[in-house]
């Protein structure tokens, strides 16, 4: 088990390094440079700043310097916000993003399982069709549409919840719901299919033959087995959540990482682009690893290593 995790972490590091390299060179292709559009700066001032931050060095030199600093935990300083270190900026913004992402993932997964299970139990009834209708909408309509609709109806028309900003738990409700709908929909469809598959299994008949009630059979015997394939999509779903937060944070004016990331691209703030990209990559790599470990928790057959 420990060996497996170590191996996966090594692969993760390689992936991480490759992402860093690609992003660095791709970023160089972005039109413009950090200080190009500053109207108040003279030509010589810009030259001075570029020299100061090593922006005039050839690309390979800049790359080597960046990787060297990165290995020491230094992600550079922002070219914009008063020379503040990128790590500090990320730490400052990570709270709302992490909370939003986590809330959306948990809510989406739980509601998705519930919808999927109920649809499967009431197979071919109005409840089944209803929940599948909801999930088709959840998959096909982008989250920012829900965000705008929720803002308008719940926030503006009925004034039930705040329309934007990130001040209290109530403020987190609408962004969380908008972000979680996609997750809910995907999980619901997956779980429903798997539940129907599991219904015909011999061990479900055996559980029935033991005299267990319908609820005990569903929750103790069926759901866990139906969850095994559903876990597979948790990885891609998390990736979708990460990118989804960019949009949702913008719409709800959440002071999170996504907002920082998007702004940094429009402003050519190289070190912030790099820093946030690397941070998202690291989070994603770790989540994929966690999902793979989760398999073993749910399904004893793929528990790894010599704990036989």
């Amino acid at each position: 088990m420990g060996r497996y995790i170590l191996q996966r972490l090594t692969y993760g590091l390689i992936t991480f390094f490759l992402i860093a390299t690609f992003t660095f060179f791709l970023m160089d292709l972005l039109p413009g440079s950090p200080y190009q559009n500053q109207e108040k700066l003279t030509e010589s001032q810009i030259q001075l700043l570029n020299d100061r931050y090593g922006l005039n060095d050839p690309l390979p030199v800049r790359y080597a310097t960046y990787i060297g600093n990165m290995l020491q935990g230094d992600l550079g300083v922002s070219f914009r916000t008063a020379n503040r270190p990128v790590t500090e900026l990320i730490m400052e913004r990570i709270g709302p993003s992490a909370q939003l992402g986590l809330q959306a993932l948990v809510l989406g997964t739980l509601v998705g399982i519930l919808l999927g299970v109920v649809a499967a139990i009431r197979h071919n009834t109005v409840i089944d069709y209803g929940s599948m209708f909801v999930s088709v909408i959840g998959i096909s309509v982008p989250s920012f549409v829900f965000a705008a609709l929720l803002q308008y109806y719940v926030g503006v028309q009925f004034k039930l919840l705040p329309v934007a900003f990130w001040d209290s738990p109530a403020h987190t409700i609408l962004p969380t719901i908008s972000l979680s709908l996609g997750v809910t929909a995907s999980i619901a469809r997956f779980v429903r299919t798997e539940m129907l598959e599991v219904t015909g299994q011999d061990y479900v008949t055996l559980a029935k033959a033991k005299g267990l009630s319908g609820n005990a059979i569903v929750w103790k015997h069926m759901v866990r087995n139906a969850m095994i394939p559903a876990i597979t999509i948790l990885g891609p779903l998390t990736a979708a959540l990460l990118t989804g937060t960019f949009v949702i944070e913008k719409i709800f004016a959440v002071p999170g990482l996504g907002e920082l990331f998007v702004t940094s691209i429009t402003l050519n703030d190289y070190s912030v682009i790099m820093g946030t990209t690397l941070f998202f990559s690291a989070v994603f790599i770790l989540i994929i690893l966690m999902v793979d470990l989760l398999y073993g928790v749910v399904d004893p057959r793929i528990r790894l290593g010599g704990d036989n």
Binding site: D202, Y203, L206, A209, K210, G211, S213, N225
Partner: peptide
Amino acid sequence: MLKIRGRDIAMIFQDPMTSLNPTM
């Protein structure tokens, strides 16, 4: 029927490879 199944009348199934729950 729940009170009779498994208590008064029990059943053994054909394929032991599939009649046990793999996650329990």
